[in-house]
């Protein structure tokens, strides 16, 4: 088991280093970092000093390793545009994005899985067909349109919910702020969370449905029926469990991409999170922020993959055996 985890960790580290190198190439070769940091009228000598200070004259290998080592300590340098350490800027915006993403993930799972199971088990019912049709609409509706639609309905027309911002936030500890504890924070969260969850929910629903239909065709389901087990036992004891195992991987990745998709939601609702920061950095070619965001997303996916892998081992006895066999 431990050998398995170590092997997984090493593979994850490989991915992180690869992404880190891409980030380094972006930082070093997309535009000149020095030109970005200084004004046009800065004298050449000053530029050279800065160049020296940043180590830009050293061999590329040295620069790359330093970049990676710094990144490993969450040091991504100074934002070109804001002249602040990138890690501080990201840290300040992390809570807003994570809270939004986590609430949206929970929403999309709570709605998506039951809807998918229902549409698979009652695939010919009118309601299942309606869900299937609506899910196609859900997939076809770009996230930003969903957001605009909600704003138009609940902010402009009904005036029930705020259309932008995070509401009042409460600090927890030294660096986390939460909007979950104030009324205005919760009200502000509703529409962004639904917007972000909707697309993922339809994906999860369609995935669960397809996977469950596949499982329902399996021999062991037929054999379970042939033994006279109740439909309930066949569906929920046999089929559901086997459906959720492969669904886990994709859902894990979907939840990871919620953070990335929050770029759009944050823009629509002026949500002060990392996505907005990233978008600004793209518009301003603020490479350190772009690089840091890229690494953050890669880190997130690596963690999610790791968790999914471990869950697999816990749920699937075949893998458990393989893992034990390999380590013992």
């Amino acid at each position: 088991m431990i050998a398995f985890i170590i092997r997984r960790l090493l593979a994850s580290l490989g991915v992180l280093i690869a992404v880190g190198l891409i980030a380094f190439v972006m930082f070093r070769y997309v535009g000149d970092p020095v030109n970005q940091m200084v004004g046009i009228e800065t004298p050449a000598a000053e530029r050279e000093a800065l160049r020296q200070q940043l180590g830009l004259n050293e061999p590329v290998i040295v620069q790359a390793s330093r970049f990676l080592l710094n990144a490993a300590r969450f040091d991504f340098g100074i934002s070109y545009q804001f002249r602040q350490p990138v890690s501080v800027m990201i840290g300040a915006r992390l809570p807003a994005t994570l809270e939004l993403a986590i609430v949206a993930s929970i929403l999309s799972l709570l709605a998506g899985v039951p809807l998918g199971v229902y549409s698979a088990l009652r695939r010919d019912s009118a309601l299942a067909k309606l869900f299937q049709a609506l899910s196609l609409v859900g997939i076809s509706l770009p996230t930003f349109l969903t957001g605009i639609l909600l704003i138009y309905l609940f902010s402009v027309t009904l005036g029930w919910l705020p259309s932008f911002g995070r509401g009042a936030v409460v600090p927890i500890g030294s660096w986390w702020t939460t909007g979950l504890l104030t009324m205005s924070g919760l009200k502000s969260l509703i529409m962004p969370a639904i917007t972000l969850a909707l697309f993922q929910m339809t994906l999860i629903m369609r995935l669960v449905r397809a996977e469950m239909l596949e499982v329902l065709r399996a021999d062991y389901i037929r054999f379970a029926r042939a033994r006279g087990l109740s439909e309930r036992a066949v569906h929920f004891h046999h089929a559901l469990k086997n459906t959720l195992v492969p669904v886990m991987t994709v859902v894990g990745l979907q939840l990871g991409s919620i953070v990335a998709f929050s770029i759009i939601t944050e823009t629509v609702f002026a949500w002060p999170g990392m996505g907005q920061l990233f978008l600004q950095s793209i518009q301003n070619v603020d490479i350190p922020i772009m690089a840091a965001y890229l690494l953050f997303i890669a880190f997130l996916f690596v963690i999610i993959n790791l968790v999914v892998d471990l869950l697999y081992v816990i749920v699937d006895p075949r893998l458990r055996a393989a893992v034990h066999g390999a380590s013992g």
């Binding site: 991915v15 535009g31 990745l253 991409s257 890229l294 890669a298």
Partner: peptide
């Protein structure tokens, strides 16, 4: 495999950002 772990929209955003920086 590595690319597939990132959502397409993020890849497109990044490529777009990098390209715009290069073609500034």
């Amino acid at each position: 495999d590595v690319q597939l772990t990132f959502p397409a929209i993020l890849i497109a955003l990044l490529l777009d950002g990098v390209a715009q920086a290069l073609l500034k």
